[in-house]
Nucleic acid binder design. Structure first.
Lengths: 129, 129
DNA sequence: GGAAAAGTTAAACTTAACTTAAAGTAAAAC
DNA sequence: GTTTTACTTTAAGTTAAGTTTAACTTTTCC
């Protein structure tokens, strides 16, 4: 099964020009029909899935391009690709830790504000009663 | 205890000009000495801590400014401030979920590559042996 | 056959969060 | 007293990841 640019765009929630932009950046280059229309293969789709995974975990486009360059170079780059993933895992784990740590602070604030507002409500109803 | 701009900068791992930039953006405005030198109070420090917490969890500077504007307006804005924090908690939680979900994919790749490379190593040692 | 979608190149624009530079004055620290 | 450090303003530059516009051609779909 092959897909047109707008089908793929819709699937990934982006605009067609974004996919052309990614292509220009050397990330995913689909085959073309004789007349020059982009046709994305199933493999292109799963490449894009990986690209989106890396992107939404904070990998810059130039590093994503690098990864796909290595893929294109075949088996001799397996070690380097593994390294990219292990490094990126470390990065994602530390991002999660940062978020969790700060989440605690935010939840502390929420508790504080909630308690304070609750207290104020009580006082008001006492005065009223 | 009061702190100079460079002491504060060092503490938060930023440059002095970044703190001046935040001031220009209406986030944290320390008092000045008679001669015009910025002196950050303990309160300024804890404000900055909160600002950094919000920033590193993805809140844009303009929203951080808005929060401090509300703080400056006193108790009448408590509800709105609580809402900012509860909304932001939701945001952070969903970011953590996204990261965790994609982390699984990345770990899947790591397993796959590791197994593949392991297999290849075995084959090589068999040929050699 | 006409509308909708796809193609092209090239350049300008956008937003966020700074950074750098220029160019000089003033204050503080040792 | 001299070397840091801090101050000012204004403006331009940077990076990332697109978006928008222009201006026009070509294909495909109904």
């Amino acid at each position: 099964m092959k897909y047109t640019i707008s089908q793929v765009a819709q699937r990934f929630g982006v605009q067609p020009h974004t996919l052309r932009f990614y292509e220009k950046e050397g990330i995913i280059s689909p085959e073309r029909t004789e007349s020059g229309i982009r046709m994305y293969s199933e493999e292109n789709i799963s490449q894009l899935e990986m690209a989106m995974c890396l992107k939404s975990t904070g990998m810059p486009l130039k590093d994503i391009r690098r990864y796909f360059e290595l893929v294109a170079q075949g088996d001799k780059t397996l070690d380097e690709r593994l390294e990219i993933f292990t490094d990126h895992r470390t990065h994602v784990l530390s991002e999660i830790e940062v978020l969790k740590r700060h989440l605690c602070k935010i939840e502390g604030k929420i508790k504080w504000y909630t308690a304070f507002l609750e207290e104020r409500k009580k006082e008001l109803s006492q005065k009223a009663g």
